[in-house]
């Protein structure tokens, strides 16, 4: 149970936090998506790293191989990467549309614009 033996976990956790922090702290919509990407990538690591055994080989059944790596996480993560790419693509497409509609990709500015547009009156006082 040394730091080194859990190296991959530490990296995973660090990347998760970095990703989340970028989403939290940046106002630029694209940078937020980058943060999201890092966040997702960290998860890929979480899956793949434990699957790899030191000295293990590809899972081909044969007499000479006794130790082989678990192939399932790789397959899973392939799927997850596809999902991640789709998400990122959609997110970027949305940012393009937002830029067209608002002329900005800064979230604070956009929300300010929305608040200014919101001309509907405050609700009247309620009694009872």
């Amino acid at each position: 149970m040394t730091l080194a033996s859990h190296f991959s976990y530490w990296v995973t956790v660090l990347l998760l936090m970095v990703g989340l922090f970028i989403v939290m702290a940046r106002e630029n919509l694209i940078k937020k998506l980058i943060g999201l990407g890092i966040f997702q990538t960290a998860v890929y690591l979480l899956y793949i790293a434990p699957g790899k055994l030191i000295g293990g080989v590809a899972p081909i059944v044969g007499g000479q191989f006794a130790v082989y790596s678990n192939p399932l996480p790789h397959v899973l993560i392939l799927t997850a990467i596809v999902v991640g790419v789709a998400t990122l693509a959609l997110g970027l497409a949305l940012v393009v549309r937002i830029k067209e509609a608002y002329g900005s990709i800064d979230e604070d500015e956009i929300l300010l614009m929305d608040a200014r547009d919101d001309t509907s009156p405050e609700p009247e006082a309620k009694d009872g």
Binding site: L20, V23, M24, E27, E107, E122, P123
Partner: peptide, 25 residues
């Protein structure tokens, strides 16, 4: 009450996504 709950109140306005994420964290 209106300040907090009204349409532009703390609890009801559109939040920047950063603070939503903060809640998640």
């Amino acid at each position: 009450l209106r300040r907090h709950y009204g349409t532009r109140g703390v609890l009801a306005r559109t939040w920047p996504s950063g603070s939503m994420v903060m809640w998640v964290a």
